[in-house]
Amino acid sequence: MAATLKIIADKAGVSKSMVSMYLNSHPLSAHMAEKTKTRIRQAVDRFKYKPSYLARALSNKKTNVIGFICGDIKSPFFAEKAAAMMKAANEAGYRLQIMVTEWNFDKEFECFDFLLEGSADGIIFYNRGLPANSAYYKKIIEEKLPVVLIAGRIKNISCVSADLEPGFDQAVGKLITSGHKRIVMAHDPENIIKYKTYCKICKKYKIRPEQIIYKDPYYTGKEPLISLGKKIAKDKYADAVIAAADYDAALLMQGIREAGFKIPDDISMVGMDGIELGEYFYPPLSTIGQPQNELAAAAVSELIKKINNPDAKSENLIIPSFFIDRKSIKPRSHHVQLEHPKQ
């Protein structure tokens, strides 16, 4: 019988996760006692242990399961992303196994190990910070593991992402032609790519980019963002706000209303992500949408290509975003005829 991670762990007298940490040079393995490392190393040598993914690949056994590692499925955006991924996997003849990490690096580590131990043929990973110098990056490259990233490009690993520029271009253009003078972007620090795209579009239309930075409500709860909405309204900081997520826009709008102001009469609001629930916000939220079904289908297709041919070239697939104009933007006292800069 081939050695498994459990056999190695039992022989060494440690947990499976500890064996995985040691084998993958996880940062926490530096804190292991030398005696523990020695026991693990001896067990690995004795049983000639190899990760079961490689053994399964050599024997051509497949599970017809795709693993999807995601930090959160409570928010509407990630719930819709998971649903789109499941639909795409099913249509391709695969089942989807969803692993939720709560944006915890150690949990991401455990999910990778669990799936690669034989639970899935390949992994689609929503990347918010897989470092290119990590043990996992090296493992993916060296062992040619079938992994596709959603967002967060890394060299030599296939990635599928949305091109945010078209959606931003349409949204900012709409606000400018509607007479808005001060268009501010509100975002958390991890949404730097969205902010850079906003700055690029502002430069294109020769307006000054401005930002309001807040902490992700996933970590802080709702109240700080609601309070920020109140402050934006009372200080008359902007006549239009682009929020980095539709959910964040909803909290800002709640704060603006609680401060006694109206949307879009006093402040126009644009969200990002294009969640279906935004249509039922009050007022219905104009937003920069991401093509979830197309992104999911492209990710599944790219992953199946890597499953069937580990030597297949890694691709960066980019699908354009778009603007959904609902009822959270109101023209100001004067309109502007937009002149697109020469290309």
Rank of each mutant, 00 (worst) to 15 (best):
A135Q: 15
G221C: 15
I275A: 03
P189W: 01
A151E: 10
V14Y: 04
K222C: 08
A240P: 12
R153C: 03
D216H: 09
D311E: 15
G129D: 08
A79W: 00
I267W: 00
I207A: 07
G67M: 04
E142T: 11
S17E: 05
N293G: 10
S328H: 06
I256L: 05
L252I: 13
Q337M: 09
F77S: 09
R257P: 00
N104G: 02
I212A: 10
K262H: 14
I73P: 00
D239H: 14
S333A: 08
L5R: 08
N308W: 00
K236P: 05
Y214G: 05
A238E: 11
P27E: 08
E34A: 13
S15V: 02
W103Y: 14
G179P: 12
D248R: 06
N24L: 13
Y237H: 06
A171N: 13
H340C: 02
Y219T: 08
F78C: 00
E339H: 11
L115D: 11
S328E: 04
A30V: 06
G118H: 06
R182A: 02
S227Y: 01
S158D: 03
I176L: 10
D45P: 02
L225I: 12
I267H: 10
F68M: 12
D311A: 15
I154C: 07
G260M: 13
I176H: 02
K181P: 00
A30E: 11
R208T: 14
Y136T: 14
A162T: 07
